[in-house]
Amino acid sequence: MASAAQTLGRYRTAAAVVGALAVIPLVPGLNSSYVLHMFILMLMWSVIGMAWNLLGGYCGQVSFGHAAFFGLGAYTGGILYYHLGWSAWWGLPVGMVVVTLGALGVGYICLRLRGPYFALGTLAMGEVLRVTAENLEWLTEGTRGIMLETRTWVAKEPFYYVILAIAVASFAVLEVMVRSKWGYYFVAIREDQDAAESLGIDTTLYKTIALVVSAVLTGVAGAFYTCYMGYIDPEIVFALHDVSIVTIMVVMVGGVATRWGPLVGAVIMILLSEVVRTLPYIGRAHQTLFGILLIVIIIFLPNGVVGDFRKMIRFFLGRSKPAGAGGV
């Protein structure tokens, strides 16, 4: 239980971060279309990372299939636009319903599996949805994808504030959940599911709650993606590597089960992929480099940049003290 001073400090940090992010489009030099695009992607990935972190970080159910929920959200907006002529923004609220149903389906099948089997189950679910979306051409237009004729705004600023609002809302929802008794139940399930069950926690119920909330936030990010990018196809939004794996990398790099890990991880990953892609010759091999990065992170910073922050500082300031476990 945090003391009053800690509580104040926590929200002061959060308020400062939100304040700084809110003025970015007004800062000369940062308000170019390109830089804002980077920031929009960072915020979108931080939402997906925070969502994954609830299920994988706190509840210990590692999903390799979050593309399933991202894609469901993205396609809900796309299909409403393409077939019914609605604004793709309806993908946000309607997508929440669709993704909830999807997550209950995935949960029914996968949540009875544990550890690596759960991970493999979700991986399979993501791929099943990708192949389904490719072949259900009457609904999804298959691999041709769905393109929005016009996007709502030409400027980046409105999109930036929409995704900032989504990120702040996601952060708040997760903060409340993780600090509540549910948060303790999630951690108990992560640490020892049988012990949690025998202490009277309905582990199936709480795992389902974590999965659904995680999936819905990911789906909202997916629906936003459709509105922002204006084009989706199954290879993009149901991608195993470019969505499911990158989601895990964002959280691993930033710090699993830390409050700021997903945001920090998203910033690092987006910057890194921009830099790597512009490198001559090896730019094409960015997936290889990401794989190497992941291995390095797992070996040297198992708690991520946020979780092992002190360890990193010590490393760069000279190794005067032995490296200990990083605080969360």
Binding site: Y184, V187, A188, E191, D192, D194, A195
Partner: peptide, 14 residues
Amino acid sequence: RLFPEMTVEENLEM
């Protein structure tokens, strides 16, 4: 079968 990353008191409360 304790919850190693919780405090003693949190374990008891569980």
